[in-house]
Simulated scan of single mutants.
Amino acid sequence: MLLRPDVFRHLCRARDLLCEVGEGQASVGEVARAVGISQYHFIRQFEAVFGATPHQLRIHARLGRARRLLAAGHMPVTEVCLEVGFSSLGSFSALFRRRVGVTPSAYQRRLRGLVQVPPSRPVSPVAGCLTLMGGLPPGTFRNFREA
């Protein structure tokens, strides 16, 4: 499919609009109007260029954000569901399981076991280079400049 550069720019702009996750997302029709293409022509061109329909791309972006939020482990599954734009926990969980292979809660539990936060160490008041030099055998350097 041969596209004019301005049409390709419009489709890329539309892709960016569709990938935005959050409240107040524009519908596919609104995105098509924003880039100046009729809705059905927009869907056909978008799929030909990007290999997925606008709806499929939006679902992929939402699930990607959901995976990142679940991996962080700071939010319960219900909050993640609402954060990424789903209104039903059941439909979110079913779609997540179909696409990812496990339920959102199982995904979050599995990643909690893999990602370990190291305990915080006290900050040393001595510069790191001096600490390294202190571990060298005596007589390694004749003077400070050589070190």
Rank of each mutant, 00 (worst) to 15 (best):
L2V: 15
L3Q: 03
P5A: 12
D6N: 08
D6G: 01
D6I: 10
V7S: 00
F8R: 14
R9L: 11
L11G: 02
A14Q: 07
A14C: 05
A14E: 04
R15L: 09
R15V: 04
L17C: 08
L18T: 03
C19R: 08
E20T: 09
V21Q: 02
G24L: 00
G29V: 02
E30P: 02
A32P: 01
A32N: 06
R33Q: 08
A34L: 09
A34V: 04
A34Y: 02
A34D: 07
V35A: 10
G36M: 03
G36L: 02
I37P: 02
I37N: 05
S38P: 06
Q39P: 02
H41S: 14
H41F: 06
H41V: 10
F42S: 01
F42E: 00
R44G: 05
Q45W: 11
F46H: 01
F46N: 01
E47Q: 15
E47F: 04
A48T: 10
A48G: 08
V49S: 00
V49G: 05
G51C: 03
G51P: 01
G51L: 06
A52Q: 15
T53K: 06
T53P: 04
T53H: 05
P54C: 11
P54T: 07
Q56S: 14
Q56G: 11
R58W: 09
A61P: 06
A61L: 10
L63K: 00
G64L: 07
L69A: 06
L70T: 05
L70P: 01
A71N: 07
A71C: 14
G73Y: 00
H74Q: 11
M75A: 06
M75W: 02
M75L: 15
P76N: 13
P76I: 07
E79P: 04
E79A: 15
V80Y: 01
V80A: 05
V80G: 01
V84Q: 01
V84P: 04
G85H: 07
S87P: 00
S87N: 12
S88E: 14
L89I: 08
L89F: 14
F92W: 02
F92M: 08
F92G: 00
F92Q: 01
S93C: 15
L95I: 06
F96N: 02
R97A: 14
R98N: 11
V100P: 06
T103F: 00
P104I: 06
S105N: 08
S105T: 11
S105L: 10
Q108Y: 03
L111M: 14
G113Y: 01
L114W: 09
L114R: 10
V115C: 08
V117N: 02
V117C: 08
P118F: 03
P119W: 02
S120E: 14
R121L: 13
R121C: 11
P122N: 06
P122C: 07
V123K: 13
V123C: 12
S124W: 04
V126K: 12
A127H: 15
G128C: 09
L132H: 09
L132A: 15
L132Q: 14
L132M: 12
G134A: 15
G135A: 13
G135F: 07
L136G: 02
L136F: 08
L136Q: 12
P137N: 07
P138I: 03
P138K: 05
P138H: 03
T140N: 08
R142A: 13
R142Q: 09
N143C: 09
N143M: 00
F144I: 10
R145C: 06
E146L: 10
E146F: 00
A147C: 12
A147G: 09
